Simulated assay, not measured.
Amino acid sequence: MVFGLFSKKWNPDGKHVYITGGSSGLGLSLAQILATKGANISIVARNQGKLDSALESLEALRVSKNQIFKVYSHALQPGSAAVAALELVSEPYGGDAPDAVFTCAGSSKPMFFVEMEEQDLVDGMNNAYWLQAWTAWAASKKMVKQNKKGTKIVLVSSTLGYMSFLGWASYSPGKHALRGLADTLHSELLLYSIDVHIYFPATMYTPGFDEENKTKPEIVRKIESADEGVTADQAAQALYKGVESGRAHITGDLITSLFSASTRGATYRHNWLLEGLFDMVAFIAIPIWRSSVDKQVVAHREEHRQYLEKNGFFS
């Protein structure tokens, strides 16, 4: 790659791809895509039943008898657990680091900030940031020590890594932090010829989405109604295509692309013409969106106060 202008498409055929959180949702859909491309796949998650089902689905998509599919139930944090998990998935390959690492593990618990307990904030940062950061830390060390060039580390943020609004105080900060980590590593790991990518998916209809809806305030649902959302398969396809084409920041929908354009910073452009158009649209559209959201929040003040009183917040 020369200053982000020219790049050769990534081909996962025959490569070892390690996916955290790959037993369901985005991670599983991505694993299934990679299986059809000839990749060897290792998945680490916690639920053994889901892992067994994931393995079965990969076997059905096998394109070569030489492909290796492995699943492991293992913790991914703290850092020592991420290192142990990485060593485990590397064993079948003589201890060699994976060719690509996709950190898809994570979860969210949307709530009003004033209702959160101390542990909600700690868990939010752990699940939104550290769960991926530790794996990236472990993978980069192993890749550098083995002088394994041309490898990839792929982080997964969210549209909420570009912006945020009420309800996401325990989640959005971690996703913004992942962007900071990815941008830093994109620069630093050039020293070792390791590529770093980060994906910013919109609302995904996955088991994780159903879980977050258990605590999601109604006003948050209302604001999110403007986002049509995508399936895990659609999101995984966008992620794969972004990595394949070498994009540093990957988006898969118009709304997220506009937020990306409005806060690009020093990130490379992938398509100068299209992203220039996004810049112009975002210059007008983003302030309108922000104003619309703020008006909805202000209009919700009295209803919100009644909600807090009903739940004993002031007592």
Rank of each mutant, 00 (worst) to 15 (best):
V44I: 04
T263M: 13
K9F: 07
G174L: 01
S157E: 03
A45M: 05
D99L: 08
M111Q: 11
G174E: 01
E59Q: 04
A136I: 02
V298C: 08
K214E: 11
F259L: 15
Q119W: 02
D195C: 08
G95Q: 12
D294H: 11
I153L: 00
T184F: 03
L308Q: 02
D227V: 12
R290K: 15
L258K: 08
R305K: 15
K109H: 02
D227E: 11
V17Q: 03
I43P: 00
R179E: 11
V293A: 11
G22S: 06
T151I: 00
S187V: 13
H186Y: 13
S260D: 14
F102P: 01
M280Q: 12
A60Q: 11
V196Y: 09
S24P: 00
G22F: 10
D233Q: 13
G312M: 07
T151L: 04
L160M: 14
P92E: 08
F165K: 07
Y162P: 03
F314Y: 12
P201A: 10
A35Q: 04
E303Y: 10
A139E: 00
L166V: 10
Y307A: 04
F3C: 07
Q119A: 11
K9R: 15
R301L: 02
A84L: 09
I198P: 05
L258T: 06
L5H: 13
I153F: 01
K50N: 10
L155A: 03
D294Q: 14
A169P: 08
R264K: 09
Y171M: 00
I19F: 02
M116Y: 07
L274K: 14
L58N: 04
H300D: 15
L121E: 05
Y18R: 00
A238Y: 00
A85F: 10
P207S: 08
S107C: 01
K152G: 05
D195T: 09
S170E: 09
A136G: 10
K109F: 08
L51I: 11
Y205E: 00
H176E: 02
P201H: 07
G95P: 07
T184N: 15
D233I: 14
M116I: 04
E117K: 15
G265Y: 13
L76Y: 03
L28E: 01
A266M: 03
K9W: 08
E118A: 13
L191S: 10
L189Y: 03
M111Y: 09
A138P: 06
L189K: 00
G21C: 09
G252Y: 05
G38W: 05
W134R: 02
Q119P: 03
Y192G: 02
T151G: 00
G49S: 14
G124H: 09
V83F: 11
G14R: 02
R179N: 09
V154A: 11
Y162M: 10
G124V: 12
P92C: 04
A202T: 13
I286M: 10
T203C: 13
P217Y: 05
S29A: 10
I198G: 01
S158G: 01
Y205T: 04
D96K: 13
H74P: 12
T215N: 00
D120I: 00
A105T: 01
D96W: 11
E275H: 03
F283S: 08
N47D: 15
E303S: 06
F200V: 06
S157Q: 06
E117G: 14
V220Q: 02
I219H: 01
S170K: 01
A133E: 03
Y307G: 05
P78T: 05
F3W: 10
T267I: 10
C104L: 05
V114G: 01
H270F: 15
L88E: 14
S80W: 12
